[in-house]
Write a protein that binds this DNA or RNA. Structure first.
Lengths: 339, 339
DNA sequence: ATACTATCTGCAATCGATTACAAAAAATAG
DNA sequence: CTATTTTTTGTAATCGATTGCAGATAGTAT
């Protein structure tokens, strides 16, 4: 155990009061005569006392920790979210337990259990589709905010992008720039992919462009998987003249594939996707994307969570944020290609 | 409080034994008659009992949480480290508290205090230079592993890159490729920048190239700062013909600056740096870098920490890992430029 | 069968705080 | 100055586990 461990008892002794009084001074919400308060403060200072948060948490049945459960912190989207969440948490005096699930329902369950067992104040969670059905039935009753993904039929706070609309806009942008054979790669583990596919299909329909099944693929949201699938799509007899990708890892793999096939962008093929990463602006041409307001998503999720922690019975909210279409060189219109 | 909260007491009752016995069954290290063990297990199963980790931690004075304190999780280096750490922790049954300090000594102190107050099992920490001097004197006696940075005069486990050597190799590579006026941008908050500067200077010296003070800058390790400083360096009468950057954020800013100045790489200027990020291979030309073995660094740090948690008196170790020079297009020799 | 060990099990203390309740002190009213 | 109310303070229970110690049970040797 820590060597110089000093507990509330020693402080009480030093100040000549009871532990209850010390506790009252420190939680500061209660009445204590100024003189005693002063004595306690001095004792605290002298002994360099710091309250043991574990003991406090056990007794008060509250905690200053929140959980953040995402698929992989290395996904730039979640990296950014996590930073925003941690910032908000810090300001509120909370700290953040980070969990990576790799889109694995088993790990998701394990981490949710951990959250319960450690009695966290609440959880911000980006679940796979698989876990969703169970979610309502699982015995987890801590405050929770779902982020990035939507959970139908479960009454829970949610923050996410307007995925259908965003994909619709992104696809429409390609179409109005003259692209017709639009290949699309969607993540298969999240609802996000599904919604973005919907937006994609609606846009095609609205413009009278037929769906081509070979142009639509679902895959693990990983760079390698994307590279492979994109490469094979590029070998098709009628290869696409544009590629729409549903997250930055898939976009990364697709870009690698284009490079490997020696295709130039956008002359041979356009490339668009989701999420602002450090590199969408650094590669040439820069990549047209839907920028998600990750800071705001993270901050909003944290805010929702703290509100729910404060008032557990509050009606739930679903907050849908708009993405921003950033038009760049990777989707330049066909008739401008010669320039 | 959680609704169906079932404690060890209920389990004991259900199984017709004492709480001590239940505890012994669950911690499984102790002798318990098979029949009782069976009864307890059944009760646990029936009541869906899960031990309260807060209570356990308070009583046993141990914890299954470790802290990870870095400057900014959005720095790809730390993103990767954090993932490796979390993986190792998960395998050992630990979870990870994530803290971003923004290289701010005040936040560092606050987080260190938090770590103490929550009685974490240990901490993996990437400190600023400022906090170092205090480090030994601060009253923090939990197991700690320093990562990425070196702390002279303090007896503590450390994992870091061979920075001097790596910078030396990187610089030598530039020199042997014909570059002579090598500008260098170093982070000012960490020891890492200092060590890399040393390697840079030694390489110049070894090749008989004079140091030019205007070519050496220290800055906040941030994209914007780097962009500004790089831009101003490019305006020099005798502008550099190569830029060496000491981390990926600085490299990002520098690349933006080169793009803004319409300089082509490596014809007008070479660019090299540290850290494998998603984009070093995606931009064209790809960027020559020293790849740090982030997975290994993170894993090693976690291993060291767990070993120290197990045996606090173990002699400390300093583990120095080698970086890997990845030669790419951004530093192609001058005489090949015409090709 | 008796004595002696070795194994199990339960009681109760403990970890370090918070908090219900009651007692004491202070403030206010009459 | 006493009665009543209000504000402070302390005592002790409590949160939910683990664990030292002693008593109970089982096992072994004589």
């Amino acid at each position: 155990m820590r060597s110089g461990m000093v507990s509330i008892k020693e402080v009480a002794e030093e100040a000549g009061v009871s532990t209850a009084t010390v506790s009252r001074v420190l939680s500061s919400s209660d009445h204590v005569r100024p003189e005693l308060r002063q004595r306690v403060m001095e004792a605290v200072e002298k002994l360099q006392y710091r309250p043991n948060l574990v003991a406090r948490s056990l007794r008060s049945q509250q905690s200053n920790t929140i959980g953040l459960i995402v698929s992989d912190i290395r996904n730039p989207f979640f990296t950014s979210i996590s930073r925003a969440v941690e910032d908000s948490a810090y300001k509120q005096g909370f700290s953040v337990l980070l969990c990576n699930t790799d889109e694995d329902p088993e790990k998701e369950k394990i981490y949710l259990q951990l959250m319960r067992d450690t009695n966290v104040a609440g959880v911000i969670f980006s679940p796979t589709r698989q876990i969703m059905s169970d979610l309502a039935s699982l015995p987890f009753d801590f405050p929770m905010v779902i982020v990035d993904r939507s959970v139908p039929d479960v009454d829970v706070d949610t923050v996410l992008l307007d995925n259908v609309e965003s994909a619709y806009r992104l696809t429409s942008h390609l179409i109005s720039n003259g692209f017709r054979r639009i290949g699309a790669l969607f993540g298969e583990t999240s609802t996000t992919g599904i919604q973005r596919q919907r937006g994609y299909e609606e846009a095609l329909k609205a413009h009278g462009i037929p769906l081509v099944p070979e142009y639509i693929k679902h895959l693990q949201p990983r760079v390698e998987a994307s590279y492979k699938i994109a490469t094979s799509m590029l070998q098709l007899p009628h290869a696409p003249d544009a590629l729409l990708t549903s997250n930055s890892l898939i976009m990364e793999g697709a870009l690698q594939a284009l490079r490997a096939c020696n295709l130039s962008i956008p002359e041979d093929i356009a490339l668009v996707g989701f999420d602002e990463t450090p590199w969408t602006l650094l590669v040439q041409p820069a990549i047209t994307i839907i920028a998600q307001p990750t800071d705001e998503i993270g901050k909003t999720a944290a805010d929702l969570l703290f509100q729910r922690i404060a008032i557990p019975t509050r009606p739930t909210r679903q907050i849908i944020l708009k993405g921003q279409l950033m038009v760049r060189g990777s989707s330049t219109p066909l008739h401008l290609k010669a320039m």
